[in-house]
Simulated scan of single mutants.
Amino acid sequence: MSRESHLVELVDSGGGAVGSATVDAAHRAPGLLHRAFSVVLVDKDGRFLLQQRAAVKTRFALRWANACCGHPTPGEKVTDAAQRRLAEELGVRTVPLHEVGVYVYQAADPSSGRVEFEYDHVLVGSASDISDFSVDPDEVAALEWIAGDELASRLSQSPDLYAPWLAGVVSAWRGSTA
């Protein structure tokens, strides 16, 4: 079953559930506001794990983003969905995650015409070593650890290399460490 046929939970502007739609329908212009999550993994030196999205992704392919993103199914706990996707994308099992905020954004992918309109729960966990990861090449093209200040600089210098949600995710992460 294609990931595009999976169901996502539609939400109102306050995050209350209002229905469901397929991933495909939720990401067609102008987009339907739906629940999502973005996982930030930080190593013992405080570096942030970047993931370059695979070339086959239907939205923002080959752009750099946070460690893992996804959508809980309707009624699924966000942390459970995030754990599932960490295992599927990075081979990471059972990393304790805590929510540091919610970031709502809408962005159109100029390459595919698809739209992200997400009520994005930002979750943070600790990871120590990139060699612990076993990436799915259909999800991930590359990984890189980066210091927060360097990431902020790169985001401002070359925003088109990064997923449009990354700046908001980084802001929520940095706000939680202040």
Rank of each mutant, 00 (worst) to 15 (best):
24 D>Y: 12
70 G>K: 03
151 L>V: 02
39 V>H: 04
24 D>L: 14
44 K>D: 15
82 A>S: 10
70 G>Y: 04
63 R>Y: 12
118 E>P: 10
78 V>F: 11
53 R>T: 11
139 E>G: 13
135 V>P: 05
128 S>E: 14
83 Q>T: 13
117 F>V: 09
74 P>W: 08
117 F>E: 05
173 W>S: 05
32 L>Q: 15
52 Q>N: 02
169 V>M: 03
33 L>N: 14
79 T>I: 05
145 W>L: 00
92 V>E: 03
114 R>Y: 07
51 Q>I: 06
61 A>H: 03
30 P>N: 09
152 A>E: 07
160 D>Q: 10
129 D>I: 04
72 P>M: 12
138 D>F: 09
130 I>D: 11
129 D>Q: 14
53 R>D: 05
9 E>D: 15
154 R>Y: 12
142 A>F: 00
43 D>P: 03
23 V>N: 14
119 Y>S: 03
52 Q>M: 04
82 A>Y: 11
43 D>K: 05
75 G>K: 06
52 Q>C: 04
103 Y>V: 01
108 A>G: 10
24 D>K: 13
164 P>Q: 08
95 V>P: 08
172 A>W: 00
93 R>A: 14
93 R>W: 14
107 A>C: 11
27 H>R: 13
31 G>M: 02
41 L>M: 11
89 E>N: 07
5 S>T: 15
83 Q>M: 10
115 V>A: 07
79 T>N: 00
140 V>H: 00
107 A>D: 10
103 Y>G: 00
167 A>I: 07
51 Q>D: 05
5 S>Y: 15
80 D>P: 05
114 R>C: 05
88 E>A: 06
163 A>W: 03
114 R>I: 01
78 V>D: 02
27 H>G: 13
8 V>A: 14
162 Y>N: 03
65 A>V: 03
36 A>F: 09
51 Q>K: 06
137 P>H: 07
143 L>K: 01
59 R>L: 15
7 L>Y: 15
137 P>F: 09
144 E>T: 04
128 S>Y: 08
141 A>I: 00
24 D>V: 10
112 S>I: 03
